[in-house]
């Protein structure tokens, strides 16, 4: 494992910690898209099925369990916590997630490394992760009042994707057999989706203004 991969994983972990802190400390999930969170949970459930049949390292196993548990906790809070669920922007968070899930599933059936159930679910999780942030980005454009924790959450997620690309570039040169074009293309698309957000985040930050995204 290289430094970019580790830094990427830690940023990913921090993004989830920030989100859980926001929910638990402020008892509010305002500005957070439940649809994005549910898709992340689905991504982890499909991808980490390999917990049952393959072992990579203790680090991998522990991280997978943390990601599963924390994303399930976030979805639980937003859907079922008596106080938190009242702060959910139900009327604003209207992105149709089947428009993302169905195409990803079809694409995973058509383009994959091996036509087996676990491999197709794994591929599906790669495709879905690439676009799962979209409802969150749309929600942030609609609610012009983005709080700091939400902004930092998305910033950390975007940074995690950027670091993973550096990790792949590093692996491309250091591991001759590492040629994952399927993962690369999805990952590049995913990082590109954050481009706009990054632009406005730093623009507002430089001029000391509150973060807003133009509609």
């Amino acid at each position: 494992m290289n430094i970019f991969r580790l830094a990427g994983d830690m940023t990913h972990l921090m993004s989830i910690v920030v989100l859980l802190l926001k929910i638990r400390a402020t008892k509010s999930c305002r500005g957070i898209s439940l649809r994005t969170q549910e898709m992340y949970l689905l991504v982890f459930l499909c991808r980490y099925l390999d917990l049952f049949y393959s072992f990579v390292s203790l680090y991998n196993t522990v991280m997978k369990l943390i990601f599963l548990a924390s994303s399930a906790a976030i979805v639980y809070y937003m859907r079922y916590d008596r106080v938190v669920k009242q702060t959910y922007d139900r009327r604003q968070d209207t992105f149709r997630y089947l428009f993302l899930i169905v195409p990803c599933l079809i694409l995973a059936l058509l383009i994959n490394h091996a036509f087996t159930l676990t491999e197709i679910l794994w591929t599906f999780s790669i495709y879905l992760e690439a676009v799962a942030i979209l409802p969150q980005l749309v929600l942030m454009q609609r609610t012009q009042n983005i709080d700091n924790l939400t902004g930092n959450y998305v910033l950390l997620l975007g940074t995690y994707r950027g670091l993973y690309i550096l990790n792949w570039i590093f692996r491309f040169f250091t591991e001759p057999h590492y040629r994952q074009w399927l993962v690369w293309i999805s990952g590049l698309l995913q990082t590109a989706l954050y481009g706009d957000f990054f632009y406005y985040y730093f623009k507002c930050w430089k001029s000391n203004k509150k973060l807003t995204l133009p509609a």
């Binding site: 994983d9 390999d50 990579v56 490394h113 057999h177 590492y178 040629r179």
Partner: peptide, 10 residues
Amino acid sequence: AATAAAHDEL
């Protein structure tokens, strides 16, 4: 082996 390589990431 090509597929196994990517599965070591999270």
